[in-house]
Deep mutational scan, measured.
Amino acid sequence: EPEARKIVEKLINNGLSPEDVKRWAEKNNNPEVKKAAEEYQKR
């Protein structure tokens, strides 16, 4: 999901860690963003 990846990169560029992004995604019920954050961590 390229859109989710863009969101993850934007949040990380704004100073969030991938863990923060995953928590944000869970709080906002956004499994695509959570998955993208996990993939981002593996890179």
Rank of each mutant, 00 (worst) to 15 (best):
A25P: 00
N30I: 11
K34C: 11
V21H: 01
A37M: 10
N13T: 10
N14V: 09
V8A: 05
V8D: 00
N29E: 07
K42G: 07
N28T: 11
W24C: 00
L16Q: 04
E26V: 08
P18L: 15
K42L: 11
I12Y: 04
R5A: 12
N28H: 13
A4W: 12
P18I: 15
E9W: 11
D20G: 06
D20P: 00
R43F: 14
K27P: 00
V21A: 04
P18K: 03
Q41I: 15
K6A: 14
Q41L: 13
N13L: 14
A25F: 02
L11G: 02
P31L: 11
V21R: 02
E39K: 05
Q41S: 09
R5M: 15
E32D: 10
E9Y: 09
V33G: 01
N29I: 04
A36I: 13
R23I: 11
P18Y: 14
Q41W: 09
E1W: 14
Y40V: 03
E9C: 15
S17H: 05
E32Y: 11
L16H: 06
E19Y: 05
K27A: 13
D20K: 03
A25E: 00
N28V: 08
V33F: 04
N30T: 05
E9K: 08
V21C: 05
E39S: 06
D20I: 03
L11H: 03
G15K: 03
K34V: 13
G15L: 04
K35W: 08
Q41F: 12
S17W: 03
E26R: 02
K10F: 15
R5D: 08
V33N: 01
S17D: 07
E26F: 04
E38S: 05
N13D: 09
K42F: 09
E32R: 07
P2W: 15
E26M: 08
K6Q: 13
G15N: 03
W24P: 00
S17K: 05
I12M: 10
K22D: 02
V8P: 00
E38V: 07
P31R: 06
L11M: 14
Y40I: 05
N13V: 07
K6Y: 11
I7A: 03
W24Y: 02
L11Q: 02
E9P: 01
E26T: 06
K27W: 10
K42I: 10
W24F: 02
V21M: 04
E19G: 05
A25R: 01
K10H: 14
E19H: 05
N29D: 08
D20F: 05
E3F: 07
E9G: 04
W24H: 00
N30A: 13
N13E: 13
Y40T: 01
K27Q: 13
K27S: 09
A36T: 04
A4Q: 02
R23H: 08
A36W: 12
R43K: 11
W24M: 02
V21I: 15
K6H: 10
R23F: 07
Q41V: 10
L16I: 05
E39M: 08
L16G: 02
P31V: 09
E26D: 11
